[in-house]
Amino acid sequence: MLAFIPFNNWYIMDLEMSNLSESIKGVFNLLSWLGMTKREEEGRPFFGDVSKRAVTLVLLTSLILMNVVKSLFLYLIPKIYLEDAIIAVLPGIIGLLVALVYILVLERLLHEQAISHKERDQV
């Protein structure tokens, strides 16, 4: 008998109802191979001990940086090359990557600074 069994908004196609537990184990095994497991989160939270004002400032300056880098590359690349679709998206992609690196570096620096302030306050 062919059945579609709802499971956490997923539908498992099963040939027999007795194989339900094996199908569920198979889905969980597949998800664990993809890295999706129900383990508790490890590590530190992103922008964990940083104030909301600093986070807002970092994100706004990253947007400004992204637009500046994009504008700079649009200025430096000749207009004739920007007619090609692949070349036309490069300034935006490079700006996005620069902004992402900027956010990651500043987040790490702010997190280390917050930890050092905590340790200094405890002493």
Results as ranks from 00 to 15, higher is better:
I94N: 00
M1G: 12
I103K: 04
I5D: 05
G35Q: 08
L15K: 12
L72Y: 02
K118Q: 12
D121R: 13
I94S: 01
L59E: 03
F7D: 15
I24H: 06
N29K: 14
V123A: 07
S51M: 05
L90S: 05
E119Y: 07
L59S: 04
S21F: 07
S51R: 05
A88V: 02
K79S: 12
V69H: 01
L20N: 03
I12L: 15
L20V: 12
L74I: 08
I115D: 11
Y11F: 14
N67F: 14
A99Y: 00
K70I: 01
S32A: 15
L20F: 13
P6D: 09
S116Q: 13
S23V: 06
S62D: 10
I94D: 00
E41Y: 11
G48E: 13
S51H: 06
P78Y: 05
Y75P: 01
G92F: 01
N9R: 14
M17E: 10
I64C: 06
V27K: 09
T37Y: 02
L34G: 11
V69I: 14
L100F: 06
N29M: 08
S23C: 08
P6T: 02
M36T: 03
S71A: 15
V69G: 00
V123W: 04
S21Y: 09
M36H: 11
D49T: 06
M17S: 06
F73N: 00
L96I: 01
V123G: 05
E42V: 13
K118T: 06
L72N: 00
L30G: 03
I86T: 13
W10N: 14
Y81P: 02
L34H: 10
D14R: 06
M66E: 02
E83D: 10
G43Y: 08
L72V: 01
L15V: 07
A85Y: 07
L30Q: 09
V69M: 03
I103A: 04
F47N: 07
A88M: 09
A3V: 14
L90E: 00
L74W: 03
L63G: 15
E112T: 03
R53T: 14
V69N: 00
L2S: 11
E119I: 13
D14A: 15
V123E: 09
P45I: 01
G48C: 05
S51T: 15
P78H: 06
Y75I: 00
P78T: 06
E42Q: 12
V89K: 05
